[in-house]
Design a protein around this nucleic acid. Sequence first.
DNA 1: CTTTCATTTCGTTAATGAGCGAAATGTACA
DNA 2: TGTACATTTCGCTCATTAACGAAATGAAAG
Lengths: 115, 115
Amino acid sequence: MMNPLVQIFKALSDPNRIRIIKMLEIKPLCVCEITAILNLATSTVSKHLSILKEAGFIFEQKEGKWVNYHLNRATQQQEVRELLLLTLKNGINDPMIQADREKIKSVDRATICSG
Amino acid sequence: MMNPLVQIFKALSDPNRIRIIKMLEIKPLCVCEITAILNLATSTVSKHLSILKEAGFIFEQKEGKWVNYHLNRATQQQEVRELLLLTLKNGINDPMIQADREKIKSVDRATICSG
DNA sequence: CTTTCATTTCGTTAATGAGCGAAATGTACA
DNA sequence: TGTACATTTCGCTCATTAACGAAATGAAAG
Protein backbone atom coordinates (compact mmCIF):
# COMPACT_ATOMS: atom_id res chain seq x y z
CA MET A 1 0.00 0.00 0.00
CA MET A 2 2.86 2.38 0.63
CA ASN A 3 6.56 2.67 -0.19
CA PRO A 4 8.05 0.53 2.61
CA LEU A 5 10.96 2.87 3.23
CA VAL A 6 8.58 5.80 3.63
CA GLN A 7 6.47 3.78 6.06
CA ILE A 8 9.57 3.10 8.14
CA PHE A 9 10.58 6.75 8.21
CA LYS A 10 7.02 7.81 9.11
CA ALA A 11 7.11 5.44 12.06
CA LEU A 12 10.19 7.23 13.36
CA SER A 13 9.00 10.76 12.70
CA ASP A 14 7.06 11.27 15.91
CA PRO A 15 8.74 12.34 19.15
CA ASN A 16 6.63 10.05 21.33
CA ARG A 17 7.51 7.03 19.22
CA ILE A 18 11.21 7.87 19.50
CA ARG A 19 10.75 8.10 23.26
CA ILE A 20 9.11 4.67 23.25
CA ILE A 21 12.00 3.11 21.33
CA LYS A 22 14.53 4.63 23.70
CA MET A 23 12.59 3.38 26.70
CA LEU A 24 12.41 -0.14 25.30
CA GLU A 25 16.17 -0.04 24.94
CA ILE A 26 16.35 -0.26 28.75
CA LYS A 27 13.92 -3.14 29.03
CA PRO A 28 10.66 -4.53 27.63
CA LEU A 29 7.59 -2.67 28.90
CA CYS A 30 3.84 -3.17 28.87
CA VAL A 31 1.34 -0.65 27.51
CA CYS A 32 0.31 0.72 30.86
CA GLU A 33 3.90 1.36 31.93
CA ILE A 34 4.60 3.28 28.74
CA THR A 35 1.33 5.14 29.21
CA ALA A 36 2.33 6.19 32.71
CA ILE A 37 5.68 7.53 31.56
CA LEU A 38 4.48 9.35 28.44
CA ASN A 39 1.42 10.69 30.22
CA LEU A 40 -0.90 10.01 27.29
CA ALA A 41 -4.19 8.13 26.94
CA THR A 42 -3.86 4.35 26.75
CA SER A 43 -5.50 4.27 23.34
CA THR A 44 -2.97 6.76 22.01
CA VAL A 45 -0.03 4.72 23.24
CA SER A 46 -1.57 1.55 21.83
CA LYS A 47 -1.77 3.23 18.42
CA HIS A 48 1.86 4.37 18.58
CA LEU A 49 2.89 0.81 19.43
CA SER A 50 0.93 -0.64 16.52
CA ILE A 51 2.64 1.80 14.13
CA LEU A 52 6.07 0.80 15.42
CA LYS A 53 5.11 -2.87 15.20
CA GLU A 54 3.79 -2.53 11.64
CA ALA A 55 7.07 -0.94 10.59
CA GLY A 56 9.00 -3.78 12.21
CA PHE A 57 10.75 -1.97 15.06
CA ILE A 58 9.12 -3.82 17.94
CA PHE A 59 7.32 -7.08 18.65
CA GLU A 60 4.94 -8.13 21.41
CA GLN A 61 4.91 -11.03 23.82
CA LYS A 62 2.06 -11.84 26.18
CA GLU A 63 2.82 -12.34 29.85
CA GLY A 64 -0.25 -13.05 31.97
CA LYS A 65 -2.65 -10.17 31.45
CA TRP A 66 0.04 -7.89 30.15
CA VAL A 67 1.40 -7.39 26.66
CA ASN A 68 5.12 -6.73 26.75
CA TYR A 69 6.72 -4.88 23.88
CA HIS A 70 10.34 -5.59 22.92
CA LEU A 71 12.77 -3.91 20.56
CA ASN A 72 13.11 -6.08 17.46
CA ARG A 73 16.92 -5.89 17.44
CA ALA A 74 17.35 -9.06 15.42
CA THR A 75 14.90 -8.21 12.63
CA GLN A 76 15.63 -9.63 9.18
CA GLN A 77 14.79 -6.24 7.59
CA GLN A 78 18.19 -4.67 7.17
CA GLU A 79 16.94 -1.08 6.92
CA VAL A 80 14.93 -1.47 10.12
CA ARG A 81 17.95 -2.88 11.90
CA GLU A 82 20.18 -0.05 10.74
CA LEU A 83 17.63 2.61 11.66
CA LEU A 84 17.10 1.07 15.06
CA LEU A 85 20.84 1.21 15.73
CA LEU A 86 21.03 4.78 14.51
CA THR A 87 18.15 5.76 16.78
CA LEU A 88 19.65 4.02 19.78
CA LYS A 89 23.02 5.72 19.25
CA ASN A 90 21.27 9.08 19.23
CA GLY A 91 19.59 11.31 21.80
CA ILE A 92 21.54 10.05 24.79
CA ASN A 93 21.91 13.64 25.98
CA ASP A 94 18.27 14.57 25.49
CA PRO A 95 16.92 15.51 28.96
CA MET A 96 13.48 14.14 28.09
CA ILE A 97 14.95 10.75 27.19
CA GLN A 98 17.02 10.72 30.36
CA ALA A 99 13.99 11.59 32.49
CA ASP A 100 11.96 8.78 30.85
CA ARG A 101 14.71 6.32 31.64
CA GLU A 102 14.87 7.48 35.25
CA LYS A 103 11.13 6.93 35.61
CA ILE A 104 11.39 3.41 34.23
CA LYS A 105 13.44 2.38 37.25
CA SER A 106 10.69 3.30 39.70
CA VAL A 107 7.75 2.08 37.64
CA ASP A 108 5.90 -0.94 39.03
CA ARG A 109 3.21 -2.24 36.72
CA ALA A 110 1.14 -3.79 39.50
CA THR A 111 0.78 -0.41 41.22
CA ILE A 112 0.49 1.79 38.15
CA CYS A 113 -2.06 -0.14 36.17
CA SER A 114 -5.60 -0.12 37.55
CA GLY A 115 -4.46 2.80 39.70
CA MET B 1 12.51 23.98 18.03
CA MET B 2 12.22 20.26 17.38
CA ASN B 3 14.10 17.05 18.19
CA PRO B 4 16.70 17.06 15.38
CA LEU B 5 16.43 13.33 14.76
CA VAL B 6 12.67 13.61 14.38
CA GLN B 7 13.12 16.50 11.96
CA ILE B 8 15.45 14.35 9.87
CA PHE B 9 13.02 11.42 9.80
CA LYS B 10 10.12 13.73 8.93
CA ALA B 11 12.08 15.04 5.97
CA LEU B 12 12.38 11.49 4.65
CA SER B 13 8.81 10.45 5.29
CA ASP B 14 7.27 11.75 2.09
CA PRO B 15 7.40 9.77 -1.17
CA ASN B 16 8.04 12.84 -3.33
CA ARG B 17 11.01 13.84 -1.20
CA ILE B 18 12.45 10.35 -1.51
CA ARG B 19 12.01 10.64 -5.28
CA ILE B 20 13.87 13.95 -5.22
CA ILE B 21 16.80 12.46 -3.32
CA LYS B 22 17.01 9.56 -5.72
CA MET B 23 16.91 11.91 -8.70
CA LEU B 24 19.68 14.05 -7.27
CA GLU B 25 21.76 10.91 -6.96
CA ILE B 26 22.03 10.94 -10.77
CA LYS B 27 22.98 14.59 -11.02
CA PRO B 28 22.25 18.04 -9.56
CA LEU B 29 18.97 19.49 -10.82
CA CYS B 30 17.22 22.86 -10.74
CA VAL B 31 13.72 23.41 -9.37
CA CYS B 32 12.01 23.49 -12.74
CA GLU B 33 13.58 20.21 -13.84
CA ILE B 34 12.39 18.50 -10.67
CA THR B 35 8.98 20.10 -11.11
CA ALA B 36 8.71 18.72 -14.64
CA ILE B 37 9.55 15.19 -13.52
CA LEU B 38 7.36 15.09 -10.40
CA ASN B 39 4.50 16.85 -12.16
CA LEU B 40 3.74 19.11 -9.21
CA ALA B 41 3.36 22.87 -8.81
CA THR B 42 6.63 24.78 -8.61
CA SER B 43 5.74 26.12 -5.19
CA THR B 44 5.18 22.61 -3.88
CA VAL B 45 8.55 21.41 -5.13
CA SER B 46 10.25 24.47 -3.70
CA LYS B 47 8.75 23.62 -0.30
CA HIS B 48 9.93 20.01 -0.49
CA LEU B 49 13.43 21.21 -1.33
CA SER B 50 13.49 23.63 1.60
CA ILE B 51 12.49 20.81 3.96
CA LEU B 52 15.28 18.58 2.65
CA LYS B 53 17.71 21.48 2.88
CA GLU B 54 16.69 22.33 6.47
CA ALA B 55 17.28 18.73 7.48
CA GLY B 56 20.72 18.81 5.85
CA PHE B 57 20.23 16.35 2.98
CA ILE B 58 20.81 18.78 0.12
CA PHE B 59 22.42 22.15 -0.56
CA GLU B 60 21.91 24.73 -3.27
CA GLN B 61 24.25 26.45 -5.66
CA LYS B 62 23.29 29.29 -7.98
CA GLU B 63 24.10 28.98 -11.66
CA GLY B 64 22.87 31.92 -13.74
CA LYS B 65 19.15 32.22 -13.21
CA TRP B 66 18.85 28.68 -11.97
CA VAL B 67 19.25 27.26 -8.48
CA ASN B 68 20.86 23.84 -8.61
CA TYR B 69 20.27 21.42 -5.77
CA HIS B 70 22.94 18.87 -4.85
CA LEU B 71 22.99 15.89 -2.51
CA ASN B 72 24.97 16.83 0.58
CA ARG B 73 26.99 13.61 0.56
CA ALA B 74 29.85 15.05 2.59
CA THR B 75 27.75 16.55 5.38
CA GLN B 76 29.31 16.73 8.83
CA GLN B 77 26.08 15.44 10.41
CA GLN B 78 26.76 11.76 10.80
CA GLU B 79 23.10 10.70 11.05
CA VAL B 80 22.25 12.60 7.88
CA ARG B 81 25.14 10.96 6.07
CA GLU B 82 24.09 7.49 7.20
CA LEU B 83 20.45 8.07 6.30
CA LEU B 84 21.41 9.42 2.91
CA LEU B 85 23.43 6.28 2.20
CA LEU B 86 20.61 4.04 3.41
CA THR B 87 18.15 5.87 1.16
CA LEU B 88 20.44 5.67 -1.84
CA LYS B 89 20.98 1.94 -1.36
CA ASN B 90 17.23 1.43 -1.33
CA GLY B 91 14.45 1.53 -3.91
CA ILE B 92 16.60 0.69 -6.89
CA ASN B 93 13.89 -1.65 -8.13
CA ASP B 94 11.03 0.79 -7.62
CA PRO B 95 9.49 1.40 -11.09
CA MET B 96 8.63 4.99 -10.17
CA ILE B 97 12.25 5.72 -9.27
CA GLN B 98 13.45 4.09 -12.46
CA ALA B 99 11.00 6.10 -14.55
CA ASP B 100 12.13 9.34 -12.88
CA ARG B 101 15.72 8.53 -13.69
CA GLU B 102 14.86 7.77 -17.31
CA LYS B 103 13.16 11.14 -17.62
CA ILE B 104 16.18 12.94 -16.22
CA LYS B 105 18.20 11.90 -19.25
CA SER B 106 15.86 13.64 -21.68
CA VAL B 107 15.17 16.73 -19.61
CA ASP B 108 16.56 20.00 -20.94
CA ARG B 109 16.09 22.93 -18.61
CA ALA B 110 16.17 25.53 -21.38
CA THR B 111 13.18 23.89 -23.10
CA ILE B 112 11.24 22.80 -20.04
CA CYS B 113 11.31 25.98 -18.00
CA SER B 114 9.20 28.86 -19.33
CA GLY B 115 7.40 26.21 -21.42
C1' DC C 1 -19.58 -19.23 33.02
C1' DT C 2 -18.74 -14.76 34.88
C1' DT C 3 -15.97 -11.09 36.49
C1' DT C 4 -11.89 -8.35 36.07
C1' DC C 5 -8.66 -5.84 33.89
C1' DA C 6 -5.09 -4.79 30.18
C1' DT C 7 -5.38 -3.74 25.68
C1' DT C 8 -7.42 -2.64 21.11
C1' DT C 9 -10.80 -0.62 18.15
C1' DC C 10 -14.05 3.08 17.01
C1' DG C 11 -15.78 7.72 16.34
C1' DT C 12 -14.72 12.31 16.80
C1' DT C 13 -11.97 16.63 17.23
C1' DA C 14 -7.83 19.39 16.72
C1' DA C 15 -3.36 19.98 14.79
C1' DT C 16 -0.17 19.22 11.11
C1' DG C 17 1.25 18.78 6.38
C1' DA C 18 0.80 18.54 1.16
C1' DG C 19 -0.95 20.76 -2.59
C1' DC C 20 -2.27 24.77 -5.53
C1' DG C 21 -2.36 29.56 -7.65
C1' DA C 22 -1.14 34.28 -7.06
C1' DA C 23 1.86 37.62 -5.53
C1' DA C 24 6.56 38.83 -4.02
C1' DT C 25 11.61 38.35 -4.57
C1' DG C 26 15.81 38.53 -6.74
C1' DT C 27 18.98 38.19 -10.34
C1' DA C 28 20.72 38.11 -15.16
C1' DC C 29 20.75 40.62 -19.13
C1' DA C 30 19.03 43.92 -22.57
C1' DT D 1 16.79 51.30 -15.47
C1' DG D 2 13.72 47.96 -16.91
C1' DT D 3 12.28 43.38 -18.49
C1' DA D 4 12.21 38.45 -18.19
C1' DC D 5 12.13 34.57 -15.75
C1' DA D 6 13.39 31.02 -11.99
C1' DT D 7 12.36 30.64 -7.45
C1' DT D 8 10.28 31.66 -2.90
C1' DT D 9 6.65 33.17 0.09
C1' DC D 10 1.75 33.67 1.18
C1' DG D 11 -3.04 32.40 1.84
C1' DC D 12 -5.97 28.96 1.27
C1' DT D 13 -8.13 24.08 0.86
C1' DC D 14 -8.06 19.25 1.53
C1' DA D 15 -6.00 15.07 3.39
C1' DT D 16 -3.60 12.89 7.00
C1' DT D 17 -2.45 12.08 11.67
C1' DA D 18 -2.33 12.57 16.83
C1' DA D 19 -5.13 12.75 20.64
C1' DC D 20 -9.07 11.61 23.57
C1' DG D 21 -13.01 8.93 25.77
C1' DA D 22 -16.14 5.24 25.22
C1' DA D 23 -17.16 0.83 23.72
C1' DA D 24 -15.45 -3.75 22.24
C1' DT D 25 -12.13 -7.57 22.76
C1' DG D 26 -9.80 -11.14 24.92
C1' DA D 27 -7.62 -13.65 28.32
C1' DA D 28 -6.78 -14.92 33.25
C1' DA D 29 -8.74 -16.14 37.47
C1' DG D 30 -12.40 -16.98 40.50
